[in-house]
Design a binder for these strands. Structure first.
Lengths: 147, 147
DNA sequence: TTTCGATGGTTACAAATGAAACCAGTTTGG
DNA sequence: CCAAACTGGTTTCATTTGTAACCATCGAAA
């Protein structure tokens, strides 16, 4: 192990990135092919489907997206009539976002697909490996306080 | 646990992506601030530093980048005079890439920083957590045959 | 109240990306 | 020998992204 050489193959940041990229790319095929959604759009749909009503800021926090990304995704979903904005009564800067019936339908359709995807991914691992990845990810999230 | 709701917070693809994104973003500060490199450029530098001489195709395979990305990164590093191309004698489509003295110097400067970054990241975990993340990532790589 | 700093959200602009078309050059099969 | 079919690598174009500036509104302090 030469000290002045970096083995990319075993460098954790690189491995994590490649792994996440592969998984994310596979998964994105599902919402891309099915509904032509981008990742920010999918996350927005998924956030609102899960929580019901959120503001753009909350959405950004929940799904780790910059507010510009959120803004664009919201605009697109609104254009599709998948969500509506309701002005806040006390603070006119804030809008409360919620899925329309159509948006909810799309969400409900996606949920089983997402769960199946995750299930199939984990099914390829042994029990110990599943425990390892889940605990390992949780530990790193804690260490980086990104969760 | 409602069956028709997806908890983004515990959805593995999302968590992996967010984690990798956070780590990668932190790490990129190092090569961005120090040398103004993009991620593809850093990977190219790092690949050539590790292996010595590679073709663009090999670089793409080693560092999981599309050939267009590789092409652009190589062009930029060449512009900086950090690498040179040498034509292959048998196949005139192929070019062998290698770092110049300046490129190698930059690489040698980056290696300890990269190792320190990874070290500090792992240092925030317990021994068991380190084992878990490394094994978990390895298991997923195997499962997705992305390594 | 007026002013000033923070905050929710949008937008403009530059840079990064992905996909596909493209240009050599090489191999294969007739 | 020649016409596909293929491969290494580049470029073009449309889309996505990040950053920062921006607009409107709000809250606090003078």
């Amino acid at each position: 192990m030469e000290p002045d050489i970096l083995e990319l193959e075993s460098f954790l940041p690189y491995r994590l990135y490649r792994l996440a990229d592969t998984v994310s790319r596979e998964f994105s095929r599902i919402y891309k092919e099915r509904h032509g959604l981008t990742r920010p759009e999918w996350r927005t749909l998924s956030g609102l489907g899960e929580r019901g009503t959120m503001t753009a800021t909350e959405l950004g926090e929940q799904s780790a997206m910059h507010k510009a990304k959120v803004s664009r995704a919201v605009a697109e979903l609104e254009r599709r009539r998948w969500l509506t904005r309701t002005a806040d009564e006390n603070d006119r800067r804030v809008e409360h976002l919620a899925l329309t019936r159509a948006g909810l339908a799309a969400y409900r359709e996606m949920v089983p697909l997402a769960k199946a995807f995750e299930g199939e991914l984990l099914a390829r691992l042994s029990v110990e490996e599943r425990v390892a990845i889940v605990n390992g990810v949780a530990a790193l999230e804690r260490a980086l306080s990104c969760s």
